[in-house]
Design a protein around this nucleic acid. Structure first.
Lengths: 243, 243
DNA sequence: TCGCCCGTGTGACTTATATCACGGAACCGC
DNA sequence: GCGGTTCCGTGATATAAGTCACACGGGCGA
């Protein structure tokens, strides 16, 4: 573990891609915090062999990010692979005109498949990753991902399972955009969301939902109202409570 | 190479998923045909090391499929990974009510990432793979994919590049469904299609395009007519000529 | 406390897409 | 050539979704 304590990404949420796309990270050492090594040991015991956990402790970078902080932006280069310890991360695909489509969520012990192969040929990332809530994660340098594949069977398994899951997620996303109508999509969206954050009260604006579903605020407001009338949820400012 | 000559999949195109989902394959030996070993050597020289090519020759299964033949259907189990030597394969995602969304095409030396991890947990495939034209390919048993990763660096590279490409394809698909209007989508569809078959005359019906784009025949007819008026293409029965 | 901004609710309207209905043209087997 | 079948073109109409306009209310800072 090269850095102990929390690392804060200073840039906050912002939907304009024109300002500087680089994410600046400040590391601050911390004493008296949770011992990272122990956290990691606990998280991976059972999944990975001890030697691998040891390696992760040595070379991984532990970070904590707050809700709304950006991990990856389109235009940046991916040099390491995140593994989520707790919390959840939202992976999105922005288009040219300010919309973004939700690709999938990452949570407990998930990893992002897109980043596994890095950004080859000096092609920058085309996706956005943003924390949904306070999230703890470990970054594994990309060379290690490759190296460990042959050294640790459980790692190879992990990498392949990650790919598999992300593919399934993406197919589910395509399904939903291609075949479902907006009201059904909204329902599956809300379900996914509650599952990823493991709570029934979502802190979110209609505007944000609309952006993630690549539609407009008014239609989301109407559909939500409809769902409220049916008794599926309760609405208030910045808050949606699922019943 | 365990089987020489062509293998024909007897079931023909059919859009009803209810009949038996298994794909039955008859192998027939062939003399006087192209020597498979030489074909394979030629295809992979430069990309793979000789020892790997040797392995592929020993354990791969060579097949030729005709246009419209199915390689994978939803409900079947994936036990081997195809590598396309020539021709092209279309990967689609069907929904419950007879529609199917196009995920991506595979052509020269591509492989299908979804199949790489097989269908784990005894979960059957959720996709459809159908030949776009006469296609020659090699099936690699799924255990080998795994085994070779550590033995052959070029294979590892190949596997990762395959994942990367398919991810990019899927993201492009999501982009197009989520953000583009139908006329733009039709254009990108036609472009992809011509690229994958490397020709300017498409043998296809409006009905089929509609199904792949998860819309209805009439709207495609209208949009195509519009593109013809603009001078982008010329229409005739079962044929679209791009200008 | 006043004004302002943000998030929301909603009516009126436009546009895009889907569906229905039908007719005609091309092709195919006999 | 003839009848049937598949494919294509097109109008009329219905529905879903997007856009515009505006009003309301709560929170919050001056």
């Amino acid at each position: 573990m090269r850095f102990s304590g929390s690392a804060r990404i200073t840039e906050k949420k912002c939907h304009n891609g024109n300002d500087q796309p680089e994410v600046r990270v400040e590391y601050k050492t911390a004493r008296g915090m949770i011992n990272d090594t122990q956290v990691i040991n606990a998280a991976f015991r059972g999944s990975f062999e001890p030697a691998l956990i040891e390696e992760i402790n040595r070379t991984g970078i532990y970070q904590e990010v707050e809700e709304g902080e950006y991990l990856i932006r389109p235009g940046s280069y991916i040099r390491s692979v995140p593994i989520i310890l707790s919390g959840s991360i939202k992976i999105m695909r922005p288009d040219a005109s300010g919309n973004e489509a939700l690709l999938y969520y990452l949570s407990g012990l998930d990893s992002c498949a897109i980043s596994m192969t890095g950004t080859p040929d000096n092609k920058p990332s085309e996706i956005t990753a943003v924390a949904e809530e306070k999230t703890r994660l470990i970054f594994i340098p990309i060379e290690k991902v490759d190296e460990w594949i042959c050294r640790f069977p459980t790692w190879k398994q992990f990498v392949f399972r990650t790919y598999q899951r992300r593919f399934d997620d993406m197919i589910a996303t395509i399904d939903s955009i291609a075949f479902q109508k907006l009201d059904e999509r909204l329902l599956t969206y809300l379900k996914k969301k509650t599952r990823s954050c493991q709570c029934t009260v979502l802190q979110i604006t209609h505007e944000e939902i609309a952006r993630e579903m690549a539609t407009s605020r008014e239609v989301i407001s109407r559909l939500l109202k409809q769902l409220e009338r049916v008794g599926y949820l309760r609405l208030s400012r910045n808050k949606i409570e699922i019943l």
